[in-house]
């Protein structure tokens, strides 16, 4: 007979694992990846492959030569960071910039804090924002969808709906005239517009959300809080003056709202633990996003909003506790 194993209870496990969750998110990103390959073709493929490979490589290299601990590249978290980073970049970005972005994302965004589980900020967004500030020109040249399918660096570029709107309003145009210059809502929903490689197709991203909710990888709180607060906030502004402020649907379907709300803000490590905290965090992201988009200098603000709220997570976790058993219901009759 074998020697008996003695361990504290529980003696069974759900079978869930870090790997399953990470690969689950990657699977949830497949529809969005398909959409980006369809609209941006060659460029999207090069950007995605470069980002994923370089993120995994940097994680491996840093763990092997600097931290000298066990490699965690197989858990899928580095590949996921690479994929999300690629989705946040235009599809005509030169390879060397992507590699720098990956190094910042993994090296500074993740490994400098001690690796998976310890990073206060979403690593992919750290990489993305670093690139946006360092290479503002390259990071805001957006290839046109479909026509640039067979192109990479030489893709024909145009503006995103958000920058079209922002510029137009700055020049004194009204929302209704600008709306005619951007793709229709249906086109925006299916992703036929300019933008980062993975953020354009709201439909594909929503399929990913449904998959993750069914597999219980994430809960509804963060995406719903972000989308809801953006809808409410922009809706109020739109009602106040529809010619100066674009409507909620425009804000939800353009830019990185869907990608951010579903995949970036829900990053386990950099989001709050309690459900109530998640909702506060989501509302914070929604409000900051709208403030940056409507009143700020940048046409887009999802990345900044998420990073800012990432910074508040320790505070939220400290003060927002889960609902405790026996705390609220007090129906005892003496």
């Amino acid at each position: 007979m074998n020697r008996l194993t003695v361990s504290p209870s529980p003696h069974v496990h759900s079978g869930d694992s870090v790997k399953k969750n990470m690969y689950g998110v990657i699977i949830a990103l497949v529809p969005a990846l398909a959409a980006s390959l369809y609209y941006f073709g060659l460029g999207a493929a090069i950007v995605t492959i470069t980002a994923v490979v370089s993120c995994v490589f940097f994680e491996w290299a840093i763990q092997k030569y600097l931290l000298k601990n066990d490699s965690t590249i197989m858990d899928g978290s580095a590949a996921l960071t690479g994929l999300l980073l690629a989705f946040n970049m235009p599809s005509n970005l030169p390879i060397w910039i992507i590699i720098i972005g990956s190094l910042v994302a993994i090296g500074i965004g993740k490994m400098s804090f001690g690796g998976l589980g310890n990073n206060p900020f979403n690593p992919a967004l750290v990489g993305r924002v670093f690139l946006l500030i360092s290479f503002p020109v390259q990071m805001t040249l957006w290839p046109k969808p479909i026509v640039s399918q067979a192109h990479y660096l030489d893709a024909e570029t145009g503006a995103t709906p958000l920058s079209v709107m922002k510029e137009g309003l700055a020049n004194g145009e009204t929302v209704s005239t600008m709306m005619s210059k951007i793709p229709s809502y249906t086109e925006l929903f299916f992703g036929n517009s300019g933008g980062s490689a993975g953020e354009i197709a709201a439909a594909a991203l929503l399929i990913g959300l449904i998959f993750m909710l069914i597999r219980k990888i994430i809960t509804w709180h963060i995406p719903v809080a972000i989308i809801g607060s953006i809808a409410v906030f922009t809706g109020i502004l739109h009602l106040v003056n529809p010619e100066v402020y674009a409507g909620p649907l425009f804000h939800l379907l353009t830019g990185g709202v869907m990608l951010g709300a579903i995949f970036m803000a829900t990053d386990y490590v950099s989001s709050p633990m309690a459900n109530k905290g998640m909702i506060i965090y989501g509302i914070g992201i929604g409000v900051i996003t709208v403030v940056i988009r409507v009143f700020g200098a940048y046409p887009e603000g999802v990345s900044f909003a998420i990073l800012i709220m990432n910074g508040f997570v320790p505070l939220i976790d400290k003060y927002v506790k889960p609902k405790r058993f026996g705390e609220v219901v007090k129906t005892a009759k003496a």
């Binding site: 020697r3 003695v6 361990s7 504290p8």
Partner: peptide
């Protein structure tokens, strides 16, 4: 000689 195998958290107190 060991007669069982402990498989819990690495802590003597536990």
């Amino acid at each position: 000689p060991r007669i069982t195998e402990y498989d819990g958290a690495t802590s003597c107190t536990i």
